[in-house]
Design a protein around this nucleic acid. Structure first.
Lengths: 164, 164
DNA sequence: TAAAACTAGTTGTAGGTACAACCAACGAGG
DNA sequence: CCTCGTTGGTTGTACCTACAACTAGTTTTA
């Protein structure tokens, strides 16, 4: 079978996307690590909890929202728990399940670190784009996600952020 | 100072971009790991060499093109050299510098693995987009990169892929 | 109602990356 | 020509993630 190579336009877009994927996580990570002693993934976990009722979610729910495997999440949550930012307790309904809940310190941490994080996101991404490009970016990433995540397991999350 | 929070549209785009950044590297990595025993970064290093005259580049040049630190690159190249995919030799002009050159096995590896990689890129990204979206994506990533990489240290790479 | 199959989560370990410390070589100024 | 600052690169270590194996609880089904 012969390969359908990328043309110039496609290659240009692809190489830039790869470059962004290579650089952006590092930028987010170092800002949060420096200012809040959190990785970007740590922050995301705490942020997901902070937006949930009771500041509580089941491990599986957090994993879905963050796109992580349960194994990865388990390690991360263990560290966050050791730092007193959240706590785990068994779920009453399903004794297999574990709930994670933000502690007061964790909630404080989210409130303290959110502004700096948003500012970083603005500086490096949002404010670099014209309003119509933000819309285009949403459509493009949506299309890509329909391939990466066909069954829309994670759709639950980002759909929540759409107009109501 | 009060924070300029993201509006719904911006937040929707951002959350999706984060999700793509979370999922896409894993998809690229596992395909290449499975079919070619390479990480995506390994592949990129080999690909950069394969597009250079003599299949040779200085370490610093590879680092620029891939966006890696010299430290990271040094570890990776060490492993690739141990596997016989490339070789290092001192640079004649500048005795501080080291050149990396693809071996025949490395060149063969690139040719063998490129089709599968391109197919993955198509399936998950390019073919999910309309032609005008590919153009938009190039413009958007370009704008983001102007923030992430203001001095355009890496621009050398992706500019090469533009129309001549 | 017992076995099979699946879901929820944890743990051990191997491998890759970041960070900092380090050494060697070049280059500009005194 | 020597010394200071810079550039090119390597190494050690600590941390994070992926993968696989495992436990325990739940649901299905025969």
């Amino acid at each position: 079978m012969d390969t359908r190579w990328l043309d110039r336009e496609q290659l240009g877009a692809w190489v830039r996307l790869v470059t962004v994927m290579e650089l952006l996580p590092g930028v987010l990570d170092s800002q949060l690590r420096r200012d809040a002693q959190l990785t970007h993934f740590d922050y995301y976990v705490l942020a997901m909890l902070s937006e949930s009722p009771e500041h509580t979610l089941r491990m599986t729910a957090v994993a879905q929202r963050t796109g992580a495997t349960l194994a990865r999440l388990s390690h991360v949550v263990q560290r966050l728990e050791a730092r007193g930012l959240l706590e785990r307790f068994p779920c009453a309904d399903d004794r297999r399940a574990t709930n994670a809940r933000l502690t007061e310190a964790g909630w404080q941490k989210v409130r303290d670190s959110a502004p700096g994080h948003v500012e970083t996101v603005r500086q490096n991404v949002i404010d670099a784009l014209a309003p119509e490009q933000v819309t285009q970016l949403r459509e493009i990433t949506d299309a890509i996600l329909s391939r990466l995540d066909p069954d829309g397991a994670r759709a639950a999350l980002y759909t929540r952020y759409d107009a109501e």
